[in-house]
Write a protein that binds this DNA or RNA. Structure first.
Lengths: 213, 213
DNA sequence: AGAATAGTGTCTCTCAGACATTATTTG
DNA sequence: CAAATAATGTCTGAGAGACACTATTCT
């Protein structure tokens, strides 16, 4: 194929101040876009996606997952636009001040976006919510050690609903994917909370209920 | 990016003679590959995928879903190979004799495959099995009207396990995604079976059980 | 002592899973 | 009437969901 520009974009989620946020780059005037770049000849799609937000995190390990590949026909220029989109999760503590002109936007208050980037973010959010229900992806937004209240709060922010504390604890514990540490965290107020950590040997994906059959 | 060849491949599943099969094209000697072709400038990814098996089916509507996008660095040629893979389902009755040199292979007895096509098929199969459990994708392999035994058999072949007849019927019926027709089918032997049809207004995706609520 | 947050147990109701017999047709 | 396939109902156990009080720390 003659002229195909292949770009890789990343939807980067993080939790700031009780809202789920997405990192966006300015496009022009009041128009924003997802961070992204053209695929280089010497890299895989994944390493290109990694590069796209490397400066945004101090973590070696980052949750990164391929989301979807979009194609757009730009009729006026007769150009074919192909974009491979990833989504990534960054814990608040591993985040740096956004470099350049990048800014964190709440998923509930997005600015005007380039191309179909709004649709892409909506899809990424749906996928994140969906994954939360059958895998252990929620930990990726938290520091290595966390309290159960923090974990529950993360779930609540992403799902956009309140959860029952006792049911949450019961299930997350008997799922066997986190383990106690010897540490506690105190906010200076109230009873200090026990810290937990994700069990690296845990089976993160759990079988979903079978609907059919 | 300078030289990127962007191909679209399709994993086409169908049910023949009690086995789940994949349509493959000969590559060279004893090596086979997934049907595919380079993306044209004037088409979207999806229409390119559709084109890749249009001659394989007489159906207007075909179940087609994007699977994953793979990138391969071919070190010796310094070329970048990007392949967007779709998977498709064709009902046995809508299938034609494979054109050209294409052949249907049982997923349990695949030949030697080009590049990472074995991995791709394995992933497509995993996805198909997974989808079967929370969506109504099984109908896409059957004619418009089908008996419950045929439907159950489809599930059994794909999942590779026997299912309980009563539980299967109970759940598939109370899920409300199929409806009775007035027709019956008889094989000439045994009691004729009632024919059902997929309800086009049905909500095919059902909520999965929440693991971590 | 009061404020703040952490931590804990029970009951009910739904639904998945196991299981065997009767009904209808054809030759 | 024999053979073949279709169709149907019940019981049990696991777990999701609703719900309120006690425990620990700090000031």
């Amino acid at each position: 194929m003659a002229s195909c520009s292949l770009n890789v974009h990343v939807v980067i989620f993080s939790l700031c101040e009780d809202t789920l946020r997405v990192l966006l780059a300015p496009e022009e005037q009041t128009l924003w876009q997802l961070p992204g770049q053209p695929l280089q000849q010497s890299e895989t799609l994944e390493s290109c996606a990694l590069r796209a937000f490397q400066e945004q995190t101090s973590r070696r390990e980052v949750y990164l997952e391929q989301l979807y590949t979009y194609s757009n026909l730009l009729h006026h220029t007769q150009k074919q636009l192909v974009s491979v989109v990833y989504f990534a999760l960054i814990p608040a503590n591993a985040r740096r001040e956004p470099s350049a002109e990048l800014r964190w936007f709440s998923v509930n208050q997005l600015p005007s976006l380039k191309d179909n980037h709004f649709e892409i973010i909506a899809y990424a959010l749906r996928r994140l919510r969906y994954k939360l229900e059958y895998s252990a992806v929620g930990f990726e937004l938290l520091p290595e050690e966390f309290t159960l209240s923090e974990l529950q709060h993360t779930y609540e922010v992403i799902l956009g609903e309140k959860l029952d504390k006792r049911n949450f604890r019961r299930r997350i514990l008997q799922a066997g994917i986190i383990e106690e540490t010897k540490h506690r965290r105190t906010k200076g107020e109230g009873r200090p909370a026990r810290l937990y950590r994700y069990r690296p040997d845990a089976v993160a994906e759990v079988k979903a209920r079978r609907l059919f059959p």
